[in-house]
């Protein structure tokens, strides 16, 4: 902040009589034009692939593709596996996040980092890791075999892959949300006679609704797009493990139009999720829930 911006320096120079005043004006216009040009290029770059998906084929033809079994099967597999995976993420992730957010113990920060690790793992590494852990010859392979469970190339494997890559997004957001609750509200509930469980369901959970919904929207979007770990760990069996992203990859060599149609579908669903996420985060309830420590007395 200490040094003046270039155009300011130019203006000062001009004021001192070193350069005609018009020169500073031209420089400023050039700088502004440069910024606009950079923004235009970047936005075009980001939007063009999306536009291209819808522009290549007519809407009628896109819709016609949905009657093809490969598309219908992929859609059903995607919806089913994601629904189960997200149910597991919510059911197991919420208590995990609450524990990590409210208890202080040795090794807690290490655990938080480990929870976030799958977020930054390359999908191929996640796939290899899942095979090494749950595959037939993996760490838990013998134990799973003993119960007659074989995960590789089954729909359960898709669920595991989706849950593995998407749960850290939810847990991370849920930890931050639970940590942001005013501890006095929790303490108040306790002194009013509510045990830990009742305090969680009557106070902590309702106050966290929005943050948890936002985390879940992110996790769902990530899970829906899951590709790398799924194709490695679960394979690409139409109607069983072939999700939409996997089917797109499968189809784009043989039938580009079908791949485009499925891509368009995913763009629409992902876009809707993004809008829902923004609305969740911006939505102001009719009764604001701000802390009111400094609100004026009426």
């Amino acid at each position: 902040m200490g040094t003046p911006a270039p155009h300011q320096a130019g203006a000062e120079k001009a004021a001192r009589g070193g350069l005609p005043a018009g020169s500073a004006l031209i420089r400023r216009s050039l700088a502004a034009a440069g910024v606009f040009a950079a923004a235009a290029v970047a936005l075009a770059f980001l939007l063009l692939p999306i536009v291209a998906i819808f522009a290549r084929v007519s809407p009628g033809e896109l819709l016609a593709q949905f009657s093809r079994p490969v598309v219908k099967d992929a859609l059903i597999v995607s919806l089913k596996t994601n629904a189960i995976a997200q149910a597991l993420v919510l059911l197991l992730g919420t208590p995990t996040a609450y524990l990590l957010a409210t208890r202080r113990f040795r090794g807690r920060s290490l655990l938080v980092v480990l929870v976030e690790l799958p977020l930054v793992l390359p999908p191929a590494v996640a796939g290899i890791g899942l095979i090494a852990a749950f595959g037939r010859f993996g760490l838990l392979g013998d134990e799973l075999n003993a119960f007659g469970i074989q995960l590789g190339l089954t729909q359960a494997a898709v669920v595991i892959a989706v849950a593995y890559v998407s749960s850290p997004l939810y847990i991370r957001q849920a930890i931050a949300t639970f940590e942001a609750i005013d501890p006095n509200l929790v303490a108040a509930a306790r002194t009013l006679g509510a045990g830990r469980t009742r305090t969680f369901f009557r106070v902590s959970l309702p106050l966290s609704r929005r943050g948890l919904a936002a985390g879940e929207a992110l996790a769902f979007a990530r899970g829906l797009g899951e590709f790398g770990a799924t194709i490695m760990f679960a394979g690409s069996l139409q109607g069983v493990t072939q999700t939409l992203p996997v089917a797109i990859y499968q189809e784009f060599n043989s039938d580009f139009t079908t791949a485009l149609a499925m891509s368009a579908l995913l763009v629409v669903v992902s876009g809707a999720l993004l809008v829902a996420l923004r609305l969740t985060l911006q939505w102001q309830p009719s009764k604001p829930t701000s802390r009111f420590l400094f609100a004026p007395s009426r």
Binding site: D182, N184, L185, A187, A188, A189, V203, P206, L207, K287, P288, T289, S290, R291, F292, L293
Partner: peptide, 10 residues
């Protein structure tokens, strides 16, 4: 009774 009253905002 807490200093900022700690009423449940929801």
């Amino acid at each position: 009774v807490f200093q900022d009253y700690a009423l449940f905002p929801h």
